[in-house]
Design a protein around this nucleic acid. Structure first.
Lengths: 204, 204
DNA sequence: CCAAAAGTGTTAGTAGTACACCCATGA
DNA sequence: TCATGGGTGTACTACTAACACTTTTGG
């Protein structure tokens, strides 16, 4: 059987960074500066350096991009198609990262997931896989990262509805959330809105 | 910022192959033939070859080991600790694979997950992560792979109880399974048992 | 006839679903 | 006073949970 040709590869870390703004799910992309795929949008990933775990590489990349080290992320799949990078073989560890919109300064590079066009490499496929992961794992432990610390219940409902592509009855949703014990009412209320201000809740 | 030292690594695929026998969860290990960790048990993994996806590498390994190409498997996590292989950097893509006991010819290399001793590399950690994955994702789509095509409902219940470490009420469990529409009664019955033979069910 | 595991029904409680109107605020 | 989104209760249905005895087979 031997000898076999063991593949020596580079490893990249590709974060699909999601946020929700104005009822739309958006991802952060950057414009690719080099060939191949020069000029096309790509995920803001990077290669693994010596002595770094994948999680550390990601953390370093997130600092460069968002300069806020407290972003939630989790691995979801590793992409190994031999020809996914035309130059040399690169395995990509896919991460999902979640940011709430208040942490975002500029909306320049955020693209609606429903309006994605041609992307570099297999990044479209990676984003779709990330979106599927998000849908299949929607639950308080992920969803909370889309929201600020204090939020109205209706905003929480909107996030659920978006991620799961379904509607909830407002009264039943509220009852369930409150009785679940995962969220609690606070004394804060919404401000500067031209309608009845909402009570703000937080995760316990 | 540049130049940076991009890490060039090998990629291995490490399957945690589970089965259930005599009410115990077991994993397949092999004895390591080379240094480092010579003589210790290890996962039956292998390195990625040129032109292979991780899934193809795994398929090839499974053929070598079990000679039955119809084994269910799924990725669960990629391990990137820089020093996890003391020789050279190796990233490991962890897979969970599930086999039903009837496909197993020899029980030589199967070890009870509760009796694991010192293993090569970080393979103990990988097995524990796989076990957690299994617990968190227990459901018909995974559990069915532990069972033969035709099985008694009580055996299905045992599998659930083992993986989730909890007990179900026998009557309620049966009602739920049958009314779920995921399993159906067949005309086959258990044979050569010294007690009332069970009706056999199958997944639809 | 004994041992061993298979199989079965009813009731009470809990959780989910459907549904329509009034409330508080700013403009 | 109007427009906008916030906030509430009740009745019905469906699922979950608790619980003990009879049945079928081989030895």
């Amino acid at each position: 059987m031997y000898p076999k040709k063991y593949e020596i590869v580079k490893v990249s870390v590709d974060p699909v960074i999601f946020t929700i703004q104005q009822g739309r799910i958006k991802v952060l992309l950057q414009r690719r500066e080099k060939e191949p795929f020069k000029g096309l949008p790509e995920l803001p990933g990077g290669l693994l350096l010596a002595h770094e775990t994948g999680e550390e590489t990601l953390q370093r990349k997130l600092q460069e991009i968002i300069s806020d080290g407290t972003i939630f992320f989790t691995q979801f799949y590793t992409f190994t198609q031999p020809d996914r990078d035309p130059r040399e073989r690169t395995v990509s560890i896919g991460f999902v990262a979640l940011v709430n919109e208040q942490k975002i300064k500029s909306w320049n590079n955020w693209v609606d997931t429903q309006e994605l066009t041609e992307l570099a490499f297999d990044h479209l496929k990676i984003i779709q896989a990330a979106r599927t992961f998000l849908k299949e794992n929607s639950g308080p432990s992920l969803i909370r990262h889309f929201l600020p610390s204090y939020f109205p219940l209706n905003q929480l409902q909107e996030v659920y509805e978006l991620l799961e592509s379904k509607k909830y009855d407002n009264r039943n949703f509220r009852k369930k959330m409150i009785s679940s014990g995962l969220v609690e009412e606070t004394k804060k209320i919404e401000k500067e809105v031209s309608h009845r201000p909402a009570k703000l809740f937080r995760f316990v």
